[in-house]
């Protein structure tokens, strides 16, 4: 017996934390340096650039691109299997369930734009990522809003994903355990969102 659906589903679940969740946290932390001004941010970028280019490329393809694409494409398939009904059944969990799917679809588009624009064209084209580059980009209100929403959506999607993961893997079983995990994750979500809003705002405030 080899249950393809089961293993793909579970792999999809794991991908959400490693590498995607970790990579998201890395983004939040690195970008938070922007609050310290251009120098601090550029220094953080430089730290990452210490990883040799060849190794970085391998990591980017196998550690990031493939898991991301898998999670995004299979996730889209999952999202399309839901007939969201929070208007009819307005329970908190059901709203979160629907938001998980709506953010998924939004992030699918956002991540493609983000990666194609910054990683492939900009960085791939030879322009290094820097504070100045982002600052100029966020001068455009459209880009600014898109990135802010993208970050918030990703953070919610990750935190809520952690809640469901605890149920999917049978970690939180009883109603109390599930409720505690849910609240804890929403707390983490709130903290990460505040940090994100803060560093994004810092671009507008200098």
């Amino acid at each position: 017996m080899f249950h393809v659906t089961f293993y793909i589903r579970r792999l999809h679940s794991i991908c959400g934390i490693v590498p995607m969740g970790l990579f998201l946290l890395e983004h939040v932390l690195t970008n938070a340096e922007a609050m310290g001004g251009p120098a601090a941010f550029n220094e953080a970028i430089a730290r990452i650039a210490l990883i040799p280019h060849n190794i970085m490329l391998v990591i980017e393809i196998f550690g990031l691109a493939i898991p991301f694409l898998f999670h995004m494409i299979y996730g889209l398939y999952i999202a399309l299997q839901a007939n969201n009904n929070p208007a009819q059944y307005g329970y908190t969990r059901n709203w979160q369930f629907a938001l998980q799917r709506w953010t998924a679809i939004f992030l699918f588009v956002f991540l493609i734009i983000h990666v194609v624009d910054l990683r492939i064209f900009t960085k791939g084209g030879g322009t290094p990522i820097s504070y100045a580059l982002l600052d100029e980009m966020f001068n455009n209100m459209g880009w600014f809003v898109l990135y802010l929403l993208g970050m918030l959506a990703a953070i919610f999607h990750f935190c809520n994903g952690m809640t469901t993961l605890c149920m999917t893997w049978g970690i939180a079983k009883g109603p109390r355990a599930q409720s505690v995990v849910g609240k804890l994750m929403m707390l983490v979500c709130a903290v990460l969102c505040i940090v994100t809003i803060a560093f994004m705002a810092s671009y507008k405030m200098h």
């Binding site: 017996m1 249950h3 393809v4 659906t5 089961f6 589903r9 579970r10 999952i78 299997q81 839901a82 009904n85 059944y89 329970y91 969990r93 059901n94 369930f97 629907a98 998980q100 809640t163 469901t164 149920m167 999917t168």
Partner: peptide, 14 residues
């Protein structure tokens, strides 16, 4: 564990 089984549960908890 097969298709349409428990893996399709998305935890909406309705």
């Amino acid at each position: 564990m097969e298709k349409g089984g428990i893996t399709s549960c998305g935890n909406s908890q309705n």
